[in-house]
Design a protein around this nucleic acid. Structure first.
Lengths: 191, 191
DNA sequence: GCTTTCAGTTGACATTGTCATCCCAACCTA
DNA sequence: TAGGTTGGGATGACAATGTCAACTGAAAGC
């Protein structure tokens, strides 16, 4: 038999999937509650039983994306057999990769502050903590915090410029990969 | 006497000002054509005589912002009496400053690609060229392009993280200023 | 002086987020 | 097991909004 909580959870899942798919395909403008509901097999205002409003639905989508980033970073952790600098390189490239393959999702992830005790905040913080350990493997624990911030900002900025087309043309004559490599080369030795 | 082109130009100006004010105050959601028209003293669909649609109106607002950035960078040019590294520091801080004082405008500036021969493209390119000369004063013309891209990306990323609240908390223990300073310290000598 | 042009207005329409209300089957309790 | 309760879902309705078509009036051109 089908319990109520089962169908409810399934609907919630379907809503999140539909919202994510629509966002990926057509950007934020394509994410209408009516279409989300239709794809999830429910009606237009059914999402209100699972999310406070449209914004919270999008926040939940972003939360899942951050969780995915955290999982990916966990696989790059210091217990892996990847050398530290290579792990850091992969972590930074992963961010750029998300921006390239899911530009709208990427923008959503960095759209709104995770500065309060929400699910988004927790998941994003976990991802940042894991990133910090990766950085720590390269520049040492003492300098990890400051260089972690710089590395994250640089990768985020590179991704943002690429998404907005400001890296295009022959202006900078550098790809995202080139710029990341340049920055990695500037990092100090662990101290 | 009041010529038609005069009033037309004045209306266009008023529309741009109104849109900019609304954007600053309440974000993109607050920019409705009805309110823009009302503040400009015209009716809801008058903007369509000056801009193709709402998006083009916002693009025009972004274009003016980029022009302002270009003007600011021009005042930091090599003919000024500011030492090169200080000029670069000021240029980067200026970007962060715009993000802080006009977050919504800042996001708009980097929202859409200037990769075609529009007014936005020209103005943004001018600003980037001027930035390049500032960078050139620090690392030398030979390395200006690659480091320019990195510096712009870093400043943009720092601003983005600050706006989205990801720099908050004690996670990175570094302000935007700290991170910029850290990066400036890593730059090589002119070669 | 007459016609043309064009900025601006008004009416109308489709889309969309949101809420109030209703419905019904799963759930719980006596 | 019967009857009340609960909560997910559906539907109707509404206001806000972007956009277009038709209309108006005055400046511009002949």
């Amino acid at each position: 038999m089908v319990t109520r909580s089962e169908t409810s959870a399934a609907t919630r899942r379907a809503l999140l999937d539909a919202a994510g798919t629509l966002l990926d395909a057509g950007g934020p403008k394509a994410v209408t509650l009516r279409e989300v509901g239709a794809r999830a097999g429910v009606s237009r205002s059914a999402p209100y039983r699972h999310f406070e409003d449209k914004e919270r639905l999008l926040t939940a989508v972003a939360t899942e994306a951050w969780r995915g980033v955290g999982d990916a970073l966990a696989r790059l952790g210091p217990d892996g057999d990847t050398p530290p600098e290579q792990a850091l390189r992969l972590a930074l490239l992963a961010l750029v990769g998300i921006g390239r393959s899911h530009p709208h999702l990427y923008r959503l992830m960095f759209a709104t502050p995770p500065a309060d005790p929400t699910a988004l905040a927790r998941v994003a913080e976990r991802a940042q903590d894991l990133f910090l350990t990766v950085v720590s493997g390269v520049v040492g624990p003492g300098q990890a915090k400051q260089y972690g911030g710089l590395l994250l900002a640089a990768a985020h900025g590179i991704t943002g410029l690429e998404l907005s087309g400001h890296l295009g043309g022959d202006k900078w004559q550098a790809s995202a990969e080139d710029l990341l490599e340049l920055l990695l080369g500037l990092l100090p030795d662990p101290r």
